[in-house]
Design a protein around this nucleic acid. Sequence first.
RNA 1: GUCCCCAUCGUCUAGCCUGGCCCAGGACACCUGCCUUUCACGCAGGCGACAGGGGUUCAAAUCCCCUUGGGGACGCCA
Length: 467
Amino acid sequence: MTTQPQVVTRFAPSPTGHLHIGGARTAIFSWLLARKMGGRFVLRIEDTDRERSKQEYTDAILESMRWLGLDWDADPIYQSDRDDVYNKYIDQLLDEGKAYWCECTPEEVEAMREAARAAGDKPKYNGHCRARNLPAGEGRVVRFKAPVSGKTGWVDLVKGPLSFDNTELDDMIIRRSDGSPTYNLAVVVDDYEQKISHVLRGDDHVSNTPKQIMLYEALGFPVPKFGHVPMILGSDRKKLSKRHGALSVMEYEKMGYLPQALVNYLVRLGWSYGDQEIFELQELIEKFSTDGLSGSPAGFDPDKLQWLNAHYMKASADADLAALALPFVVRAGFDDASIDFLTKLVPLFKERAKDLPELAEAMRFMLVSDAGLAYDEAAVAKALTEEGRIHVAALRALFAGLESFTKDTTHDVMARYVEDNGLKFKAVGPPLRVALVGAMGGPNLPDVMEVLGKERTLARMDRAVTL
RNA sequence: GUCCCCAUCGUCUAGCCUGGCCCAGGACACCUGCCUUUCACGCAGGCGACAGGGGUUCAAAUCCCCUUGGGGACGCCA
């Protein structure tokens, strides 16, 4: 039986910072494509920049991936311990006359670029050492002998047919003077060795693609399919980058967003499936296709992320949301809060918050001690009038006689009280609310009382009438 | 400067490939109303876009060209 060539995608971060949302989005797309096609998703740490790469960033990136729910199929490979592999291929290119040693200094090359720029051309290396047949030597780099005519093109998964005139490209360095490979060489070698079939990456890589295709061809490797997803723009329509407002995935976690909300938001930013907005992870895998990817850049909209976050909070099981909220509750000053109590609180509050800090804040009046409850002055003035206090006191007496103190029994007591005295609910609701909550908003009173319990409910009412 | 890409409501987008069903649909945000003791949720409405100009065609958001605007890339970074 014949098998389809397996789909293998990859995410190849460079550990020079945390995983930011742009990187996270391409990682998600790549992961989705692999999962959808029943293929493999692998990781590669591109740490050839020895100056800026840090292990702690690698760890943080992997942690963010896990948090987002993206799993990978093999241990990540690190480019930093593959120099011999790269050199093997560089030597091959050298042997075949497809690359050459160059002794031009960075300053000299810069001068060439300046000259080209001045002439209105694209800044390029001028090929000074191309035909000199220099041997290896201290301080020398290896350059790739790029074709000087013709075109290099491919059919992009996102943008369709794309092509570049080879005269646009120069002889790129593939091996630095310190012996390490440069990005373009290392990517090609690794994508080949990891058998990557589909490369999904940011738009900022399109101009690297022809260079890489040349390398694939020179090396005799099959060329994978490429798809370039547009950048994420900030509110000022500028590219979102590490130094320009791109927040890291970790920061969203700290701000109290749920991973599924971030994933859903990021996926919909640049990808669509008809009019659908909400996608569970499993559904995303079923419905994802590179066909739905948009070719135009998208602006980041924090409001919509918030809306999705609110949605996923509402959709969460109470206990799960309670666990998620716990750290935020602790941070709000209640380090003795228990998951059990929070689990009872969550159903009353999850529709009233868009993120975890808001949730913790909304629950504050339930978490705080009865004596420590803060009363909003305006609310007290408005609802705890003389008449209001009379109702609170009367209700207090009725509640005190209750055997079973549940939302149903307290509700019945209130209903009967209102009816017996020919009142409107509006006359007793607000004063009771202010007595228990300290303010005018919040969940249904019977729900609040049930969770608070009889003792605490009465304590708050006692305190309120003396205010 | 050179090359590449992109262009539908404020934002994300559907529609564009395979012109007519689109005087353009959905979502976020915003506004109004309903529900409710309150806040929120929810529900029902509303506001709001085919960048401009030329073509092609009986017919263009959809195809072609130009202009404008935006983005990206031009590294011994990735």
